[in-house]
Design a protein around this nucleic acid. Structure first.
Lengths: 112, 112
DNA sequence: CGTTATAGGTTGGCTGTCTACATATTCATC
DNA sequence: GATGAATATGTAGACAGCCAACCTATAACG
């Protein structure tokens, strides 16, 4: 996948993998890889700043812990984060449908 | 629609509206509006530089003409532009499916 | 002791979108 | 004939976010 194509949609992806439970940064990167079938292989320079951004924005709450002698920063969705995720899902659907319509050749009927 | 969300996908959108025939910049903006049901209202400061970028890249060929006393720069797809459009469509489909899968809640089955 | 996997980061640059500004013509309205 | 909207093309500068490259540290395995 072309780098940068994720731009503007990363926050929603991160919030989505945290929906099922808290994860630390490294595990978030792996979860994104797993869920995307390997297509999303995001560098730490992309993910870690995004996590801090989302924490600063109040969507995530981070906490330090020590597991097996290694420091971990575990992030969990806040209530505001769940709202943000819902909003991101809505925006994504609109964006996706618009691009499908303009780009043409969509293999399924348009939603709502 | 959130500004900037189009980032990285604009080129494909422009190439797509030019697929059915040449258009000048202003008409491209209107075509994007029309095809998107009004959701895509791109400012000239976004579209005009993109057109020059695409021309420089060899995807578009621009030519001046005077219509009704007004100067127009009409752009048409080159052969390379058609290839670029096909590539953009492929990349979009992959990106869309990946985001759908990760974000979850897709209202239709995944494609091949 | 070296290498790989795990885990967390920072820095700086690049690119592309957007806001705001600038210019000019045509056409309808006042 | 002035005023303003629509048509038409562009530039300059700001800003954000993603990425490549780099850095640190521990654990596990050979």
């Amino acid at each position: 996948m072309r780098p940068d194509s994720v731009r503007g949609h990363l926050d929603g992806l991160i919030l989505a993998v945290l929906e099922t439970g808290p994860l630390h940064g490294y595990a978030i990167i792996e979860a994104l890889q797993a869920r995307s079938g390997g297509a999303l292989d995001l560098p730490t320079g992309t993910v870690y700043p995004a996590l801090r951004r989302l924490e600063r924005a109040g969507s995530l709450a981070g906490s330090w812990s020590t597991v097996g002698g290694r420091e971990r920063r575990t992030y969990k969705l806040t209530r505001a984060g769940r709202h943000a995720l819902a909003a991101q899902r809505g925006e994504w659907k609109e964006f996706r449908d618009v691009v499908n319509r303009v780009l043409g050749g969509e293999p399924w009927p348009a939603t709502g």
